[in-house]
């Protein structure tokens, strides 16, 4: 093989057969140019996959919006009643529980903001960085 070429992208996408992977590994062990290229292509691939998945504009596809309004009108009474019971329980609990130290907004942000930033659900959905160590050995 002169250079790995498009085997590199196919490897990163999991589209190579086992013999092709072995062929690529053998080549990369002796070709600095292709070893550098696989790192660069991996960066680009990750960058594209890090683009956020955009939400559909509201109302564009009502069928896709349907899940956002799951409550039917005839369930409204029970939902309201349940909310009232929950509010009552919280109010009673607040009255009988010793007061806790107040928490500043900044502290809340640092606690939950940090958690959110680490949660995969808040980040890019499809960023998978293949392990190149075995390939580049």
């Amino acid at each position: 093989m002169s250079h790995a070429g498009d085997l590199i992208s196919a490897y990163l996408d999991g589209e190579l057969t086992r013999p092709e992977i072995e062929q690529l590994k053998a080549h990369l062990s002796s070709c600095g140019r292709c070893a550098a290229e696989i790192q660069e292509v991996q960066l680009v691939r990750s960058a594209v996959r890090s683009l956020p998945m955009l939400e559909l504009p509201a109302g564009l596809v009502p069928e896709a919006d349907a899940e956002m309004v799951p409550l039917r009108r005839n369930k409204g009474f029970w939902v309201g009643a349940a909310a009232a019971v929950v509010a009552l329980v919280i109010a009673v609990a607040a009255l009988v529980t010793p007061s806790s130290p107040s928490i500043a907004i900044d502290e809340l942000n640092s606690r939950y903001g940090a958690r959110a930033s680490l949660d995969p659900a808040f980040g890019p959905a499809k960023v998978v960085v293949p392990d190149l160590e075995g390939v580049l050995d």
Partner: peptide, 30 residues
């Protein structure tokens, strides 16, 4: 990378051989 199709699915959608898909993706990334 955005839709998440396999090379074979892309080949069917675009009506080109899988090898062409592989080449286009790699050249595009470069």
């Amino acid at each position: 990378d955005i839709v998440g199709l396999s090379y074979e699915e892309i080949a069917r959608a675009v009506a080109v051989p899988v090898g062409t898909v592989r080449s286009r993706i790699h050249r595009g990334r470069k």
